[in-house]
Nucleic acid binder design. Sequence first.
DNA 1: CAGTGGTCTAGACCACACT
DNA 2: GTGTGGTCTAGACCACTGC
Lengths: 263, 263
Amino acid sequence: MVQTLPPPADGAATAAGPGQPGTPAFSPLYQQIKALILQSLQAGEWKPGEAIPSEMDLAVRYRVSQGTVRKAIDELAAENLVMRRQGKGTYVSTHAEQHVQYRFLKLTPDSGDISSEGPAERHIIDCKRLRATADIARALALRAGDPVLQVRRTLAFAGVPTILEDLWLPGGPFKGLTAERLADYHGAMYALFETEFGVRMVRADERIRAVTPDRAQCALLKIEPGMPLLSVERTAYTYNDVPMELRRGLYRTDTHHYHNELS
Amino acid sequence: MVQTLPPPADGAATAAGPGQPGTPAFSPLYQQIKALILQSLQAGEWKPGEAIPSEMDLAVRYRVSQGTVRKAIDELAAENLVMRRQGKGTYVSTHAEQHVQYRFLKLTPDSGDISSEGPAERHIIDCKRLRATADIARALALRAGDPVLQVRRTLAFAGVPTILEDLWLPGGPFKGLTAERLADYHGAMYALFETEFGVRMVRADERIRAVTPDRAQCALLKIEPGMPLLSVERTAYTYNDVPMELRRGLYRTDTHHYHNELS
DNA sequence: CAGTGGTCTAGACCACACT
DNA sequence: GTGTGGTCTAGACCACTGC
């Protein structure tokens, strides 16, 4: 592509020493290509579910070898930003697919898997606009007082309310989101965000605690007071680590559990 | 290496159709090399912390190109079985390193990170041999009644008991493990398992719930009854998905939280 | 059949660590 | 300098998909 220089950093001659301690001296070509593909993804040049150009096409476009493009795409695929399908092409990931419907939901029934209990029954309780408190502003990289949307909903499995969630979304990107549109949409919420608002959730962090719910929460989940619940606080990010959602969930864990794999 | 055939499967002529629906028709060379390296790892040919032969040496040994060995090692590195260090070599992963001391512990202080609060204070409460109950036998792939070791311990941070754990280990591989040896060892428990028993934990599953502790558990953690705790049930595996440990932990989450990253 | 991603090779050169 | 892993290239061939 170009030089062996850091993509958005100071540029000395090739093979010059690092300018500052801790500053990488250069970035490999395939990383630069990866960044360029990421830009196109972010700019919406290729939409979720669509195929991106073939490796050969991209190699020609960026004036590098196919192997270099391949390594760039390999990393994007490892981060779940694109999906490779042999013989067909490379596709932009989407939350609107059956088998990745619950990509970010780690709650599993104690016996069987998540698909064995049928689709979750979604119930929107509330959706209102308000101004960000200090902690919500911090999580969403906004300023306190900026407009945000708050959504409250429940998810039930086999008729049993199992999850109670509050979501906060930045008001700007989600202008026009209403309880009706949420209720009318049948599918994962992140799929709606993709198609209706062009916001793709790419990565998330979760902080998990055990808590005792208050009376209102017990009523919404139809449980006895005193039953401990899992508190799952999630920050979800779009491209470039921009936070786009704060979510606080309460999970029943008497029939389900949060499943995690370590390696 | 050899042929384009499935490593431990039926072998028809090259490019023959799949024998059974769902049976892969062949496995790529680098997967076969990966399996061979895995065997050497498992056999203890290279010990944790040691370097494995260089890519060139392995390429000569297996009669393949360096690129093929590289791809095999890439996958092993992605699974954290080995660690690459540019300019030095490729090393067998170990739990006995400072910066990966807590590779499988996802509990983090609410402010700061796990290293900011100093080393955990470990306290062995109990270590006894007994016979596997049905559920423990199932988790460890043993038969009910087989000998197992049960260990109970607490972990405290800054003087505050935060984790209460019960562990069950298969009696055979861990013959000779006593409370004294556990108490005398200063370092991660999995590091002791490596050096003293040659058992390397490679991967784990966790099932997380919110629970109310009983009186005995409250006493050991020095907390008031009624405080909800995180129940973290872990199955840890060595090579080839052989289960080697069942662990049931209770975590305080008023000052710490279980942290998880989704992608 | 053509087009796509997947594998394999061989060789060149670069960055890093140790001596 | 030597040896290690890391990058990049170019070309060949294989496997899968759909026309």
